[in-house]
Design a protein around this nucleic acid. Sequence first.
DNA 1: CGAACGATTGAACAGCATCAAGTAGGGTGG
DNA 2: CCACCCTACTTGATGCTGTTCAATCGTTCG
Lengths: 227, 227
Amino acid sequence: MTTLPSEHDHRDQCVALVPIFAHLDPVERHEIASRVRQRTYRRNELLYAPEEANHFLMIVHRGRVKTYRGTESGHEQLLRILEPGNFIGETAFLHTGTADHYALALEDAEICSLHHEDIREFLTRYPAVALKMLETMTERLEQTERQLSSYTGEDVGARIAGYLLEKAAPATGELILTMSKRDLASLLGTTPETLSRRLASFTDAGWIAQSSGGRICVLDRAALARA
Amino acid sequence: MTTLPSEHDHRDQCVALVPIFAHLDPVERHEIASRVRQRTYRRNELLYAPEEANHFLMIVHRGRVKTYRGTESGHEQLLRILEPGNFIGETAFLHTGTADHYALALEDAEICSLHHEDIREFLTRYPAVALKMLETMTERLEQTERQLSSYTGEDVGARIAGYLLEKAAPATGELILTMSKRDLASLLGTTPETLSRRLASFTDAGWIAQSSGGRICVLDRAALARA
DNA sequence: CGAACGATTGAACAGCATCAAGTAGGGTGG
DNA sequence: CCACCCTACTTGATGCTGTTCAATCGTTCG
């Protein structure tokens, strides 16, 4: 009596999607997939909150998830947006095992979870996966450090301009904001009001064009970079 | 013809000092130590600069090292201070292999380096070390994220107060600043002038006492926490 | 002993947050 | 199908925190 093939397929697919498992052969992937627990979260549902014990490495299979930190003053700092293939819950590696931030589904999302102990065992057995994971963590650390220095080194205008330049399609200069302006403001370390004003001034200057649905088109890259 | 015992001892000691290698048995440690290259850096000497290829994992054996990022506007953002036992150069795991920040010796320092390929091989052979390393990277990431949210969520006074409370000895409330006030200001995302002013106001309020040599004594923890 | 650097203090400006009001869009229920 | 509401976004006016520029002082090192 085996599990239904479709279910297998689904979980295998989830694992194959994740960069850190990508290079494994089908048999190894299947082994990991067999330990995966799946669950769907609704839009605006909390995956976990601070102080909560979390013993799972959570992989986003479908949908998007945001992690953020709520400071005691009520201020909310967005940390990052997870797309399919990204994972959270690295605290699972720590002995404390409690998160210090929130994780919330931005849309209906499917999450594949691996228990703390399972993942430790896998990493021990497949060191190549551990190396991949180290690479991923290193990249995230560098990205966070970049974000950190931009907060004190550049003014708000420059951070906004930098974000637009980073996200704009190389050819057309078009981009669509993948999050609310409220969230974007938080990510860039400012307020929705200031973000709105700066975008308006960029538009007035003819550097960008805004249309509905968060569509923005970068018209003058050089000018933005100078900002 | 073997290497001199003293040299072996020295390198073994260096390896034993590092938390991620701490749990290895002497034979394994020795194996790693045999691949370690040692070098001393002088005070104010640069370990590496951005854009520079860096294929080594560098472990601080003696002395202290600071990593910082120079933004294009000339502003300098201090990222962290490394104490003996800490390591940098995780970019070695990335395929790019180029750092995007500076590393500089604050004092004369002894650094043990492991080549990129050697460390990859060790991590493959000793997965437990890879796990330890993942734990370390996770902690650093969380710490950096905390730092990030404190920049936008708390005002300068609160960040300074938080630093003092964190570093003060639990019993006596005493602490000695381990870096220049210029560097501390940078770490806290402010300027030396503002730091100086806030510390002066804390002193006036009777919450702390300052003496020469960067010695500070926290007198009123509760008041500082409220700041 | 002088030079150079770090720390401190002072004064003025400015960027940005805050508060507040108004607008637009999208979903719900009558 | 329309009226309504709730949320997101925009725009406006004001105040404040913290940076910047500048001068002074202390101290450490050559």
